[in-house]
Amino acid sequence: MKTVVLVSGARHPVSRRPALTRLEAQAASLAAKLGGTVRGLHAGPSDDQLREALGHGLGEADWLEIEDRVDPVPALIDHLKAAAPDIVIAGRRGEGTGDTGLVPYALAEALDMPIIADVVGVSPGAGSGTVSIEQALKKGARRRLVVQLPVLVTIHPLAPPPSPFAFAAARRGTIRHERIEATGLPTAKPSPFVERPYRARPKMMRQAGAGQAGEKAVLVGPTPEEAAERILAFLEDNGIRRYSA
């Protein structure tokens, strides 16, 4: 059985660095447990995510290097047509900057493969050329399907947790690099918007400290000037506003 695990160009939600998503790590582990020949596949400008997938159990991978913002689907279609895998496993949503989560559907249509979404388990089927797939439904329900190969599946988060990352496995795994020229492929237009991750403002916390208690003083009938001075001094002392700076 030949399995290909699709790896997207996802980014880490906090650092925005290229990173493998948990779903795809689960896909890699699921494929590695299934056995047969398993390869990772990524089309994009860097191979960082693929390298990480190797650490989660993939032995080998193909990296189709294309420029940023170039649609990866045609390159993937060409590659998959030549490779003719039995099972293609993908994540189920975009988790990066430009990805849409529609790639598995586009591929299934172009390759004329059935697509099964939200899969939590794959095992060899009873008959030859079939595979038994467990699909997650709402409210914890599961559905078992026996499907004729080839098939494309997307992974559900409730699939078995990914096998832990091992640096040595990532180092030993091999990536076959192929450069795909962008000519003739449709290019996404650069976005007119500047994207910036949401950043909560730091909260101003009232200063806890023993010092304030000692300064408590009751002013009886202060002059307006004196009262204002004391209020400003209080705000200044507690770092709520700065007038002097």
Binding site: G55, S163, P164, F165, A166, F167, A168, A169
Partner: peptide
């Protein structure tokens, strides 16, 4: 355990 097996 960590680097070779990922067995943390």
């Amino acid at each position: 355990q960590t680097l070779e097996l990922g067995a943390v």
